[in-house]
């Protein structure tokens, strides 16, 4: 009756064989294709480097001015503009300007990528129930799998650096974008869609003129969550060589520099709050346009 008290697991040797088989297969794969995959991502790397340099070399008053301007047009709320400006000033005073700009560039790229990929996937999901039942479990896995686990194959393939960092962040941050696009489109009033069809809309006209505009508030909620999740990945991404606010935090953990960790952590929080308030109030304004 051993097998009741002790789980009849595979033998140690068998397990080791399985692990080894998976590892070598993947290693062979990355040896074979690693460099071509790297080449594929080269334009992305170029763009990342360019954006980061741009943000760092632009004089800080211009950046702060731009952030204030964008906040104003998105939210029309002077409190949010004021909060954003003061946070950025404090970040600069405490010597975290450059790291913040690096993080900003990475977040921007990750968000853009998530939108670029997530929007069409979300549309596809809304269009077909079969696509939805196929993609939903994948999104579940992406969101619940500890991020360290999928860092491993990414690093094995692409080594350490910005691009694997971005990929890891996008995998983690894209699900809400996809889900909320899908949801937003599916929740569009059936009667309105029927009207569009009855008056002679084609499939694309319906999508572009009715479904997407009406799903916009939901899509914006998705973008907002994507940004928040990217920011929360910053520290983990810094473990594989992504520059920015995550690196000093990591250093602070290993060397037990409490103050350093705290300041950089607060800078991440400040960025998060700015992004959140600005994108959310923009989304709300969009929503206010349609619904009383």
């Amino acid at each position: 009756m051993d097998w009741l008290t002790e789980f009849p697991a595979l033998s140690y040797d068998a397990l080791r064989e399985i692990n080894k088989a998976v590892d070598t297969t993947f290693r062979d794969f990355s040896r074979e294709y690693g460099s071509s995959i790297e080449q594929f991502f080269d334009p992305l790397l170029q763009f990342l480097v360019w954006l980061e340099q741009l943000l760092i070399t632009t004089p800080w008053p211009i950046i702060i001015g731009l952030v204030a301007l964008v906040s104003w047009f998105a939210s029309r709320n002077y409190k949010i503009v004021l909060g954003a400006t003061i946070s950025l000033l404090l970040i600069g005073i405490f010597g975290m300007w450059e790291n913040t700009m690096s993080t900003l560039s990475i977040i921007t790229v990750c968000t853009l990528l998530s939108i670029l990929l997530g929007l069409p996937i979300g549309i596809l999901m809304a269009h077909s129930n079969r696509a939805q039942s196929f993609i939903t479990p994948i999104l579940d896995v992406m969101q619940t799998m500890p991020s360290f686990v999928y860092l491993i194959p990414v690093v094995m393939l692409l080594g350490i650096g910005k691009v694997p960092g971005v990929i890891a962040v996008v995998i983690y941050a894209i699900p809400p974008m996809i889900r909320l696009t899908n949801l937003g489109i599916r929740h569009v009033d059936k009667a309105v869609l029927e009207a569009a069809e009855a008056f002679g809309s084609t499939y694309w006209q319906k999508l572009r003129q009715v479904q997407l505009p009406l799903a916009l508030p939901s899509i914006f909620a998705g973008i907002n969550q994507t940004i928040m999740m990217s920011l929360s990945m910053v520290v983990i991404a810094s473990m594989i060589g992504v520059k920015g606010l995550g690196q000093p935090v990591l250093k602070a953990i290993t060397n037990q520099y409490f103050a350093m960790g705290l300041f950089n952590g607060l800078a991440i929080v400040a960025l998060a709050i700015i992004f959140d308030r600005v994108s959310q109030s923009y989304g709300k304004r969009l929503q206010g346009q349609h619904n009383a």
Binding site: A191, V192, A195, F199, P213, H290, N291
Partner: peptide, 13 residues
Amino acid sequence: IAMVFQKFALMPH
């Protein structure tokens, strides 16, 4: 053929 709907079905945006 044009159509008029019970719940109006105007485009809210």
